[in-house]
Computed example of a mutant assay.
Amino acid sequence: EAYFKYINDTQGGVCGRKIVYKMEDNNNDAAQGLEAARKLIERDQVFALVGSLGDDSEAAAWDYINEKGVPDIFFSGGVHRFATDPEGHPWTIPLIPSYTVEGTFIGEYISENLPGEKVAALYENGPQGWDELEGLKLGLDPDKNELVTAQSFELTAMSIRSQVANMKNSGATVAVYLCGPGWVGQGIQEADRLGWHPDIFMSYTSADDIMFQFVSPKLLEGAITFQAFKLATMREDPAVARHYDLMKDYGGPAPSNFTIYAQLVGELAVEALSRTCDNLTREGLMDAVESIEDWHTDLLLDEVNVTFSDTDHIGLQTGRMLRVVVEDGKAGFKYFGPLYVFED
């Protein structure tokens, strides 16, 4: 919202029109997600849905949205099927890397850098866990690493102690946490209580300093995750510094990795809209999105670009690994290693 205010203020909007941004809270809930989509489409008569958030809410609403022929662009949900059905759901285009893409990169990294190590995975019994586990299996080289156990848990569970104990007892020396930040933190703490200190990998949903609210930097040090854009802690970077100024000047929230990603969504939406000035229709917007090739903004990592087509709705398919480091008593995330590129 802050970025759209900036565009309205400094550029008069897009194609000579101000951007009117309306929001409905879906609470990442199936019933509320469908109701929120209906309100925006039928009550507010929005031109397009931009940057919607949540896997469960999208699963409930995407059939309805596509039946209505409303652009559902740069959706922020990682379930792989949302990006791989351009024929059946042509109006939906996610942006963030899918959980399958991320899991594949983690598996590839393990086999390239930790050959011979036994791997254990903890995954939520839901779309995120299923997709990330599938990706992990795709990425692991079975000649180099064995996935000795994959432990699932319900999102309603009170504890994952038994699952972590099973992971330890499997003889694994690598633990991959395919779940949200709170569960990752609980898993690492349980492992420490059991005296088990494997190499740690965790979903990109945990690639933020918020993790240090769930688990101590000492236990997180060395943990590896994945991301594709610059971090809010990179304040010496000119693009990140401008982001801080923009959030301050246009009433945005405190800068974080989440606000940087949100500005990316806004920048890409403005790019797509700017290509529709001669055909400002919903069909024209989708054509514009599908014409985007090797798009880059300074908030993305070098060599990370965005490309769409009418047969490829997977947004970010590249990125680099992040490692938790503790320097001078301060914990944070640092990029390292080569660029990973997903091959479907």
Rank of each mutant, 00 (worst) to 15 (best):
M167Y: 04
T307R: 03
S162K: 09
Y340P: 06
W130E: 09
Y99L: 02
Q32F: 02
Y21L: 12
P217F: 08
N279T: 08
A207K: 00
S309K: 09
W91L: 01
D141W: 06
L133M: 10
L301E: 12
D328G: 05
R161V: 04
V304C: 07
K330Y: 04
L268Q: 11
E190S: 05
P238T: 13
L339C: 07
M286G: 02
P253F: 02
G139L: 01
A48G: 11
F229E: 10
W91E: 04
G266T: 12
E271N: 10
E154V: 00
Q163E: 15
K330E: 14
L147W: 03
N145S: 11
L95A: 09
I188K: 00
W62M: 08
G251I: 08
R161N: 04
F82V: 07
G185Q: 07
A2L: 05
D29S: 13
D72P: 01
P181W: 03
G78V: 12
V70S: 05
F82G: 05
S274Q: 15
D209Q: 10
D278M: 05
T173D: 12
Q317C: 06
R242S: 14
R275I: 03
R81H: 14
V176M: 06
A288R: 07
E267D: 08
D344P: 15
I260E: 04
N125H: 10
G222W: 07
T92L: 12
E146A: 15
S159W: 09
G69K: 08
A262V: 08
T92F: 07
T307C: 09
A232I: 02
Q213V: 11
N279S: 14
D209E: 13
P142Y: 04
L178C: 09
G337S: 07
F74Q: 01
F229Q: 11
L34P: 01
A59Y: 00
R282M: 11
Y21N: 05
G88I: 02
V270W: 06
V119R: 03
Q317E: 14
V164S: 06
A2G: 03
L147E: 01
M167T: 01
N28W: 11
D237I: 08
E108L: 02
E283L: 06
F82Y: 15
A36N: 07
G78W: 04
G266H: 10
D208R: 03
Y250Q: 11
N27V: 03
W91M: 05
D237T: 06
Y335F: 15
M247G: 06
